[in-house]
Amino acid sequence: MIEVKQVEKRFGRKKVLNGMSFTANKGEITCLIGINGSGKTTVLNAIMNLTPIKRGEILISGKPLTKETYEKIAFIPDAITMMPSMTIQQAMDFMNDFYTTWNQGRATEILNFFKLSSKDKIATLSKGNTAKVNMLLGLALDVDYLLMDEPFSGIDIFSREQIAAVFTSHLVENRGVLITTHEISDIEHLIDKAVLIENGKVLTEFNAEEMREEKGKSVVDVMREVYQP
């Protein structure tokens, strides 16, 4: 479980995380929903220890992030972080050199699943294919938790469908996925849990199926109530 507890973070005077708390379970897909500027990316950065936090605590499987727990968690940022001049093969080799958890067998499988060619240069890829390579580089790590920042934004519908198919496959089986988005409609049926945030705070968190069962409300219904009272 990833536990975010009362986390505070400022950029200058602006509080970007204002006592944010939520949990993301292993074996589940948790979705952080909020408009731009609500603190989604910042909290992912904070979980990965890429940005210092002022107050609060973040635990991965009950422990704070250490050298060992870094091996249990992977972050897929919204833009690819590889050199554009690299081929997909070189990017995979690069990952293999730096991460002991790199699983080339799985990487090859994902490569085929997305119909990508390892000889292609990253700079020459379409936006959709760049996003797929970005996903590949994170998914091929043998980690317990995957954080994904806006994997669907700015991508055509078929690429979105292909990426969404990853979530129903064994590629994320038994792992914990924490994903951010501001457009839920694509993945409403895929997520286990929704966490609605605004101004660096959690407004509500709920299990999507329970919400349908107990209140007859869709995730979008709850969003309407919460964001447009």
Binding site: G27, E28, I29, E161, A164, A165, F167, T168, S169, E173, H189, L190, I191, D192, E209
Partner: peptide
């Protein structure tokens, strides 16, 4: 996979 829904569901 076929229905495009969560495996837990």
């Amino acid at each position: 996979g076929n229905l495009g829904i969560n495996p837990n569901t």
